[in-house]
Computed example of a mutant assay.
Amino acid sequence: MDIRAVAEADRAVWAQLYAGYAAFYGVAQTDAMRQTVWGWLMDADHGAEGLVAEVGGVVVGIAHFRSFARPLSASVGGFLDDLFVGPEARGTGAAEALVQGVADVGRKRGWTLIRWITAEDNYRARGLYDRVAEKAKWVTYDIKL
């Protein structure tokens, strides 16, 4: 399993995986929305970055992440926005490898933690997350704008 930065040549398989991620969460996502996110990932000046998990030359999973300021601790952390592994590759360790890939990026950059959220009923993913990270005590709120 190789974990590497997403590249221009990954666009088609990335789009399929990202559409699968949106479908998993029941989010209506258009080609235009994916084009916007792809543009962010390909723009070195934008904060969003991506990794892919590759097995035998085939991309089987994606992760999107970004840095964020942590004023209370006067430090910088990493936020794992999206993590998805195609159904055919689940159970291969790709999701854990992607999480560790983001953590490796954070270590190199001096980040103090990697944070992410998941749906409460995403039990399969939470099994992994409970193994590789500490569940935070924070409750998440959203204001729709």
Rank of each mutant, 00 (worst) to 15 (best):
G77A: 12
L145T: 04
G56D: 11
I117T: 09
W116Y: 02
R70I: 15
L80F: 08
G47R: 12
Y123W: 00
G26L: 12
A7N: 08
I114K: 02
E8I: 07
I62K: 02
S75R: 12
G101K: 04
K144Y: 13
V99E: 04
A89K: 03
A32V: 01
R90F: 08
W116V: 04
A69Y: 15
L17H: 09
R124Q: 10
A19E: 07
G101P: 04
T36S: 10
A19W: 02
A48T: 11
V99W: 08
E8K: 11
M33R: 11
V52I: 07
G26S: 09
G56Q: 09
G93Y: 08
L83E: 01
E134W: 09
T30G: 12
V37N: 00
A53C: 01
I143W: 15
A23V: 09
F84D: 02
A9E: 09
A12H: 11
D130N: 11
V52S: 02
R90W: 06
E120F: 14
L98V: 07
A32K: 13
L72F: 13
A89S: 05
E120A: 15
D43G: 08
K137R: 10
I143F: 13
I114P: 08
D81M: 00
A94H: 02
G61R: 00
D130Q: 10
G26I: 12
H46K: 13
W138F: 07
A53H: 02
L72K: 15
E54W: 03
R66P: 11
E88G: 08
I117E: 10
R4K: 07
G61P: 00
S75G: 13
W116C: 01
A136L: 14
W38H: 05
G101A: 03
I3V: 15
A19T: 14
A22Y: 05
Y141T: 09
W111H: 09
L113Q: 10
T36Y: 11
A32M: 08
D31P: 14
V55K: 12
R107D: 10
I62H: 02
R11Y: 07
H64V: 00
G57T: 06
M33Y: 09
Y129N: 06
D10H: 08
R34M: 13
H64D: 02
W111V: 05
V76K: 08
L128M: 10
A19V: 10
D142K: 12
T92C: 02
V55E: 14
V102I: 09
L41G: 03
W116E: 06
L51M: 03
V132Y: 07
D10P: 05
